[in-house]
C-alpha cells in the first residue's frame, strides 16, 4: 500500500527562540531550520512499515518556500521513495495546508497518511484532523503504536488518562506522538542516493487551492518571565516557608 507523509520545515528544536523587537513574529533570519520533530517520527514510521513489507511506496510532501526541499530530501534519505513540493512563499495556515494535502491525497490515493501531531512553531495540532475531515477519513491522533491489519489500522493513542486504541478503516490519517518510535539518522550513501530521487514541484494554484488565511497575527511577544526566588538552607526551612510565608500547605 502507498503511504503519504507530510513534513514541515521549522526552526530547529535546539535553537533558542527570540521574538523580534518590533513584535511582528519570531526572528528566523540566519536561524538553523530542520524537519519538525513530529514529522521525523512520521517519516520513520512509514519507513518501518515499508521494511515490514506493509507499505510499498512512501511519498513525502511538504508545503512552503523553495528551501523546504531540503526537508523533503532528508525524508528521501531516510527511506521515502518520492517527493512532492508545494511551493509558496506565503504563510500557510492549518486549514489551507489541509486543503492542499487533500488535493494531493486525491491524486495519489494513499492508504495511509502520516503526519506529526503538531509543528513546534505554531503548535496548532490541527492539520491532520482537518485533512481527515476534508477527505472523509478516520483519524488516529497522538499515536504511540500503529498496526495495519487487512483493511484496517489499529492505532494506540496517547490520551489524557493513559492509552486508547481505535480501529480505523483504511484509508486513514495517523498523527504521531513522541513515543511512536525513535527516528534513525540518514547515512551518507542514502543522502547521496536521495539526491537522485524524484521530486515534483507544484504550486497551490496547480492544485486548485487558493490561499486565504482566516487568522491574522496582531503581535508576538516574549512570555512574561518568572523571577527566581530564594534558596532555602534545608527541608525544615522549606516547609516553614511553604506553611507560613506562601501559605500553600
Amino acid at each position: 500500500m502507498k503511504v503519504l507523509v507530510a513534513v514541515k520545515r521549522v526552526i530547529d528544536y535546539n535553537v533558542k527562540v527570540r521574538v523580534k523587537p518590533d513584535n511582528t513574529g519570531v526572528d528566523l533570519a540566519n536561524v538553523k531550520m530542520a524537519m519538525n520533530p513530529f514529522c521525523e517520527i512520521a517519516v520513520e514510521e512509514a519507513v518501518r512499515l515499508k521494511e515490514k513489507g506493509v507499505a510499498s511506496e512512501i511519498v513525502v510532501v511538504s508545503i512552503g518556500p523553495k528551501a523546504c526541499q531540503e526537508q523533503i530530501r532528508t525524508a528521501l534519505a531516510l527511506g521515502a521513495d518520492r517527493g512532492i513540493h508545494i511551493e509558496t512563499d506565503e504563510e500557510v495556515q492549518s486549514l489551507e495546508a489541509a486543503k492542499l494535502l487533500k488535493s494531493v491525497v486525491e491524486k495519489e490515493e494513499p492508504k495511509l497518511v502520516i503526519l506529526g501531531k503538531q509543528s513546534i512553531d505554531s503548535d496548532n495540532n490541527q492539520t491532520g484532523q482537518m485533512l481527515a475531515a476534508l477527505t472523509g477519513m478516520g483519524q488516529g491522533t497522538f499515536a504511540s503504536e500503529v498496526v495495519v491489519e487487512g483493511d484496517k489500522v489499529n492505532v494506540t493513542r496517547e490520551v489524557d488518562g493513559g492509552l486508547m486504541t481505535v480501529a480505523l478503516n483504511l484509508p486513514a490519517v495517523v498523527t504521531t506522538d513522541l513515543r511512536l518510535n525513535e527516528p534513525r539518522y540518514a547515512s551518507l550513501p542514502n543522502i547521496m542516493k536521495a539526491k537522485k530521487k524524484q521530486l515534483d514541484s507544484m504550486t497551490p494554484a496547480d492544485l486548485g487551492v487558493e490561499l486565504a488565511p482566516r487568522l491574522s497575527t496582531l503581535k508576538v511577544e516574549a512570555p512574561a518571565s518568572r523571577q527566581a526566588g530564594v534558596k532555602v538552607a534545608d527541608v525544615a526551612e522549606l516547609v516553614d516557608k511553604l506553611k507560613n510565608e506562601a501559605k500553600v500547605i
Partner: peptide, 14 residues
C-alpha cells in the same frame, strides 16, 4: 502560546 510557550501570539479571527 507558540514555539512551546517561548513566544505569545495575539491572533484575530475573521
Amino acid at each position: 502560546p507558540i514555539y512551546a510557550g517561548n513566544a505569545i501570539a495575539t491572533v484575530k479571527s475573521t
